[in-house]
């Protein structure tokens, strides 16, 4: 298995390389630069700034320089937050985003999977319709609607929880719930569908024909098969959740890294944007690998080859 992990990680290097290259040239192709302010800077200052950040060199040289630094784990200085390097910003923001996303993921998995299984076992009955309804609700209501409503309801009107900010566990409740809601909905739907299909499979019929109690039929012979599509979904979903959400971080005033992407792109903070792209790509690679390992552990028909 170690060989499989190493091979997969080695296989991911070209993908990350292509992603970094594409992203680099795309953001550089965008019109404007990091120092274009409302009032144009003095040409001399501009020249100095460009020289300081190597922006005066040909693009390909800048690219090679960036790539070289990246290989040494250096994300470079931020263009717009000049006292910080990109690594500094991530060192502060990433733990916040990962905590938030991880809790949301956990909540979504527990609640979503339970609801999905419940709905499948009560297919076409009240509980099933309720879960399907809630799931559709969760998928359709955008989080930038949920977030202010929750904040207003529990933060301002009821005063039970802080309406925004970061620091205590109480601060985490509303943002985690906001982040988890759509994931709960998706996981519940996936689990429900997969469980219904598994319940109809021939091997579940065999288990029932051999008088195994419902508990064993469901837990042993249904859930393991039903969790497979959820596992595949979780890879990309986890990568997205753990790297922060711009909406939730903005509304609740949370110092995560989700905001950096949008802010960096709009301000042409090239290193910040590239840093975010690299971090996300690494998360995607890691979680796809974890998904493949989990899949192979759950399903003996899948082997570590290829």
């Amino acid at each position: 298995m170690l060989g499989f992990v190493l091979r997969r990680l080695a296989g991911a290097i070209p993908t990350i390389f292509i992603v970094v290259t594409l992203a680099y040239f795309m953001i550089r192709a965008a019109p404007g630069g990091p120092f274009d302010l409302e009032r144009p800077l003095d040409p001399l200052i501009m020249e100095n700034l460009n020289a300081a950040f190597n922006l005066d060199k040909p693009l390909w040289q800048q690219y090679l320089l960036y790539l070289g630094n990246l290989l040494q784990g250096d994300f470079g200085p931020s263009f717009t937050r000049r006292d910080f390097s990109v690594a500094d910003l991530f060192a502060v923001g990433l733990p916040v985003s990962v905590t938030l996303g991880g809790l949301a993921l956990l909540l979504a998995l527990v609640v979503g999977a339970s609801l999905g299984v419940l709905a499948a076992l009560r297919q076409n009955k009240g509980a099933d319709y309720a879960v399907v309804g809630i799931a559709t609700f969760g998928i359709t209501i955008p989080n930038f609607v949920v977030a202010p409503i929750l904040s207003l309801l529990f933060g301002v009107w009821m005063g039970w929880l802080p309406a925004g900010g970061w620091g205590t566990p109480a601060h985490m409740v509303l943002p985690v719930v906001t982040l988890a809601l759509p994931q709960i909905a998706i996981i519940a739907r996936l689990t429900r569908g997969a469980t219904i299909e598994a319940l109809r499979s021939n091997h579940v019929r065999t288990a029932r024909a051999y008088g195994l109690p419902t508990r064993v039929v469901v837990i042993t012979h249904t859930l393991r098969a039903a969790i497979l599509p959820v596992v595949s979904y979780l890879g990309p979903a986890a990568a997205a959740l753990l790297t922060g959400s711009v909406v939730v971080e903005t509304i609740f005033g949370i110092p995560g890294i989700g905001r950096y992407f949008v802010q960096g792109a709009l301000a042409r903070d090239y290193t910040l944007v590239m840093g975010t792209v690299v971090v996300i790509a690494i998360f995607v690679v890691i979680f796809n690998l974890l998904v493949d390992i989990a899949y192979a552990l759950l399903d003996p028909r899948v082997r570590y080859e290829r």
Partner: peptide, 10 residues
């Protein structure tokens, strides 16, 4: 594998 939001903002 390129972040979708990156495309959109570009």
């Amino acid at each position: 594998s390129l972040p979708f939001i990156f495309f959109v903002i570009l």
